[in-house]
Computed example of a mutant assay.
Amino acid sequence: MTRFRTALIVLSLALTTGCTSAQGGMSALPTLAAGEYRLGAGDEIRVTVYGLDPMNNSYVVGDAGTISMPLIETIAVDGKTIPEVESAIASAISARQLVARAPSVSAQIQKYRPFFIMGEVQRPGQYPYVPGLTVNSAVSIAGGYTFRANTKAVVIKRKTKTGMVKGQTGPDGQVWPGDTIEVSESWF
């Protein structure tokens, strides 16, 4: 009878230990549709303004979420989409009356801010983001999983408009620029 109780206790402990996780209380990760990408510190954009050659250049979004441009000075771009940035630059040009007609502004992303990967991968660290990145491709960039890695799920920390979000996703989960991917150990 004592062996039966001991086995029952060990079994119940094993089951409850497997069910508990440090990842409890996580939210669902938001997805990113085409054209919804929002700029953040570390992104680099190329701006072209027809007729105002001194403004045509590449600009890196600083820690304050701004870019500094000649003739119009500082523009806040953190959390804005490319069309919103084009509109903000055009408004600043119009406000300063730098051109007679409505300014023609074009902007595009030159370089995305990096993503970070840590835990059970061969080479944890910071890597350049490429559009369409998934967890599998991010792990490949980091040299692959270690022999003890959980290959079925990872935790991603992501900055959104409402703050920092932490969620769990599988190997085909979408990775955004600035994400931190945590690959944990597998217990089985």
Rank of each mutant, 00 (worst) to 15 (best):
L32D: 06
N150V: 07
V85I: 15
L32E: 02
D179A: 12
G51T: 11
R46S: 07
N136D: 15
R101E: 11
P83F: 07
A102K: 13
T66V: 14
R5V: 11
L8R: 07
T17P: 02
S94W: 00
I75R: 12
I89S: 02
A88F: 04
G65N: 06
F188Y: 12
A14W: 09
G40P: 07
F4R: 15
V49L: 02
P83W: 01
G18Y: 07
Y37M: 08
Y37I: 07
P177I: 08
M69I: 09
Q23N: 02
G65F: 15
V121H: 07
G163P: 04
E36R: 06
M55P: 03
A7V: 06
L15A: 01
T81S: 12
A90W: 01
N56I: 11
V183K: 11
S106I: 00
F115V: 01
M118L: 13
P103N: 02
Y59E: 04
G119H: 10
T160L: 10
S27V: 13
K161G: 13
S186C: 04
G35S: 07
A22C: 00
R5T: 05
A95R: 15
Q126D: 02
S94E: 15
S12D: 09
L39C: 07
D43N: 12
F147S: 13
P70R: 01
D43Y: 00
Q108F: 03
S21D: 05
S87C: 01
I141D: 04
P70C: 00
T146A: 10
G25I: 03
G24Y: 00
L11I: 08
G51C: 04
T20D: 14
S68N: 10
G18V: 04
T6Y: 10
P83A: 05
L29I: 08
V61D: 15
M69E: 00
V139N: 03
L32R: 11
P114Q: 04
V61N: 01
A92C: 07
L98I: 08
E120D: 13
A64L: 10
G40E: 15
Y145C: 05
D172K: 14
Q122P: 07
S184E: 08
L11Q: 00
Q122E: 05
P83R: 03
D78F: 01
P171I: 10
E84V: 11
L133T: 06
R158E: 02
M164L: 05
A100T: 15
A33V: 03
G18D: 03
A95E: 12
P103A: 07
V77E: 08
M118W: 06
Q126Y: 00
E44R: 09
F115D: 05
M69P: 04
Q168C: 14
A34N: 12
A153T: 10
R38C: 09
D78Y: 15
V154W: 03
L39Y: 03
R3Q: 08
Y37N: 04
W187K: 11
V165C: 05
E185N: 15
P83S: 14
T16F: 04
G163S: 07
G144I: 06
